[in-house]
Structure formats: structure tokens, C-alpha cells
Design a protein around this nucleic acid. Structure first.
Lengths: 224, 224
DNA sequence: GGAATGCTTCGATAAGGATCGAACCATGCG
DNA sequence: CGCATGGTTCGATCCTTATCGAAGCATTCC
């Protein structure tokens, strides 16, 4: 019984199903609000709030208050790495999952990450927006270029910042391990994809499935 | 509330103080009996037995029965890696510990991680093995190069894969935050270090202490 | 200044699980 | 076989903690 870092304390924080679901949801890289996390974990708001304060006390989360919204996010890459390690063991010892089915494949191609698009399509899109200089990489931030403003405006997407929420924001993609676009612009693009019926949300899943013609339209507008 | 690997189940196994102490003790790499683990965890024998069967059910331990003795050991390097990751987070978020004492310093330099070497020495070694192209980084995997095979063979280390266990595997180091070498090769190298008496295991600790001449020999062979 | 929304705290309840003593198996020794 | 030793199972107790409804704060919108 030698003393040392309190690993039981950290592990038990992850060891509750509700908290594990929350952390899992936050592995996408985007910060989420308490209500969203409550939904994700399948518990009531008070319960979620209690879990969140425990995770905060444990140092696993960071909190960004924006007005009456409170965004919870993972405290850092080290925490994310630990969760990945636990996932790895759980996968290894857990019931041998059948080969990743079509739904998993669809998730890798395109899925919803809170309110914007993630997956291979989303990562490719961000790459192209940089290539076409519609977005500019500025330090670790993303900015709109003047041509970007008019480009999105022509698509019916207004890009002036109204809320405190940033227009552009990088979000680390779970499956591709590179950034995709979040922020109000990312959300607006996803809105457009759905509104134009280029794709539909899979029921009870984060997967986003493009129709053949919808994919062509999306590629013409964002990947050309 | 998506379904997936049951990470809460795994984490909650580690999340009990008694079990965490047991796992910690097993990180030394030697298998221990139920009574030894009970002592280590500070619980009675029945309690320890109950914990051990839970850890077995969870797939975190292996059991080797020898006569009336039953030796429990970690189920593999992946489990060890997960525990290292949790230790890393616990160290980072835990109460700012007083200046790391001499024993902690020794642990940072070199220690046992289940069955292979960890710490600054181990991370430096892996770096050099890459530099010398004895190992190759392939995607996210590690492979032996042809020259690596002959190099280790000349040192008396055979590197053909026999079991399911990979020869080379990256394991994240909690103190350095970079990878060191696990897998059968990592285990063989630690064996050689001990067999050649370049270093000895510290009593009741995971620390590995090199002798002056042993360190020179190690550096000549693996860090040159 | 209301009204509405997002979130937290409080209080009570319920369930899970950690713990130990005692009894029970199994192996090895003489 | 009888006995000692290492381990596990059983049963009862106790404590931790997850949970939710209701009420309370805080911030924004109208």
C-alpha cells in the first residue's frame, strides 16, 4: 500500500456510466453544455450537473462560461489520451465486436459533431477552404478572408459574428485525427447541407448520409 | 448515450482504491499471490479474493496456478499502458506534490513498466533506435527493419514473432509524455539489462537503478 | 421590469458494492 | 489419514453515491 498519485480517484470518475458517456461525447473535441451532456448521458439535468462538478473537481474538465451558456470540454490532450487508452482496453477485453458495420463506415465518412459536420468529408472540406484562401490559418486560429465572406454570402450564409461564439473554430476529428470546421460557420454549413437535402441525419446516430446528387452538389460547392 | 466499448466498466474496476493498489503493485511485472496482494491493498483476504475475481472477470488479470499457489499478473502490456496513462493524469491533476524526492527522480530516469523499461532512458533509447533505422515508424505502428533484426540478433535477442503478441509496440510514458518501446522486444531488452547486471530493480519499487559501468554499457549498446 | 432559459443546489430515496468473520474447498506434508 | 496452509464462498452489515423533483440563482430577451 504505497502512496502515490491517486489513480483510484481518477479512474472512479470515469467509472460511472453517466460520466463515461459524457467524456465519450467530449472526445470529439467540442465543448458541450450541461443540457447536451445530460441528454448524451441519459440522465436528468440535476444529475448531470452533479457529475460535471465532480469531473471539474477531479481536473478532467475545463469550463468556459459564455453568457448563460456554460461549455464543458476535456481538460487537455493528456486526459483524452487516457480515455483513449481505456477505450482500447475495453475494446480488447470486451465482447468481440463484429467487423465495423456499414454504420461505422458511414460515421467515418460524415457525421454530426454537436452542430457541425465531422468525418472525412468535413476534414477534406476544411483543407479545400484553406487551399482556396476562403479561410486563413492564423496562428492556431481560423479567420475568414474577405473573399470568404463574399463567397459564403453568395451561398446565403452570413458570416458576421453576432454572438460570443466564434465564427470559425478548429475541431479535432475523432476518426481522421485532423481538424475540421466548427463555430457558427461550421454550424451554418451543416444547416445548409440539411436544408438543401443534400444529406440526412441517420436515425439515432451521428451519421450523416449524402444522397448521390447531394454529394455532387456538396462537392461542387465546397470541394471544388 | 451511444453504445460502444464499455469504458465505464473497465474504469470502475480501476476506480476502487483496493483494486488500484493491487494493479499498482502488479505494475512491477512480477505476478503476486492473493495474500501478497491483500497485504499490498490493505484489505482482508476474502475482500482481496473478491476484488481479484472481479479483475479477472474484467479481463485485466491473468492467473497462473502452481500447486496451491495462485499467481495473479497483469493481462498484458495494453493494460499496463492504460494504467500508466491514468497515473499520468492523476499526477498532473493531483495535489501539487512536494518536490519529487530521490526515489521519484530515479523512477523518472528508469523504471519497470510491466515487463519492459520506461522512463527517460527508455524514451531516449526508442528515439535512437529510430535514428539508427533499426526500427521504423510505420503509420502508427513500429516495425523492425532488416538491419534491426540482425542488430538485435547480434546482441542475443531473437526478434521473430511467435505468439500473438507484437514484437514492437509503443507505450506512452507518463513521466516524459512520449513513447517508449514495449512488446516482446521491449521485454527482451529489459531482460538483457537485468541479466547483464547493468542495473538492478529497487526493492519495493518500480525504479531501475543503473550502476556506473552498467549505464556506460547500456549507452554504448542502445544510445550510441 | 417581467418572463424565459440554462444551470445549480437541496433534500430525500434507493441501490450498489465494499467489507469482514465464519464456514467451506483444495493442495501439500508427514 | 490427519493436519496445516492458501484461497474462495457465504451472509450480514454498513457506507458510499447515483438519482430525481422541487426550489433557487444567474443571465439574456422582450
Amino acid at each position: 500500500m504505497r502512496e502515490g498519485p491517486d489513480i483510484a480517484r481518477i479512474a472512479s470518475l470515469v467509472g460511472d456510466p453517466a460520466r463515461a458517456n459524457m467524456l465519450n461525447a467530449l472526445m470529439g473535441g467540442t465543448a458541450l453544455t450541461a443540457s447536451e451532456l445530460a441528454l448524451e448521458a441519459g440522465v436528468s439535468l440535476p444529475t448531470a450537473s452533479s457529475h460535471l462538478s465532480k469531473l471539474m473537481d477531479g481536473g478532467l474538465l475545463t469550463l468556459a462560461s459564455q453568457g448563460r451558456h456554460r461549455y464543458y470540454g476535456l481538460a487537455g490532450a493528456q486526459v483524452a489520451g487516457m480515455i483513449e487508452a481505456i477505450i482500447g482496453v475495453a475494446e480488447a477485453v470486451g465482447p468481440k465486436r463484429v467487423r465495423p458495420g456499414p454504420r461505422d463506415a458511414a460515421m467515418r465518412v460524415a457525421r454530426v459533431c454537436y452542430d457541425h459536420l465531422a468525418g472525412e468529408q468535413a476534414v477534406a472540406m476544411l483543407d479545400r477552404l484553406f487551399d482556396r484562401k476562403l479561410l486563413l490559418r492564423d496562428d492556431n486560429q481560423i479567420r475568414l478572408s474577405p473573399s470568404g465572406v463574399s463567397h459564403f454570402s453568395a451561398l446565403g450564409i452570413e458570416t458576421h459574428a453576432k454572438a460570443r461564439r466564434p465564427v470559425c473554430r478548429a475541431c479535432l476529428d475523432w476518426s481522421v485525427r485532423r481538424s475540421h470546421l466548427a463555430g457558427t460557420l461550421g454550424a451554418a454549413i451543416l444547416d445548409k447541407i440539411i436544408a438543401e437535402k443534400w444529406a440526412r441525419r441517420e436515425k439515432d446516430s451521428r451519421a450523416v448520409v449524402f444522397s448521390p446528387t447531394g454529394r455532387q452538389a456538396f462537392e461542387r460547392v465546397f470541394l471544388s
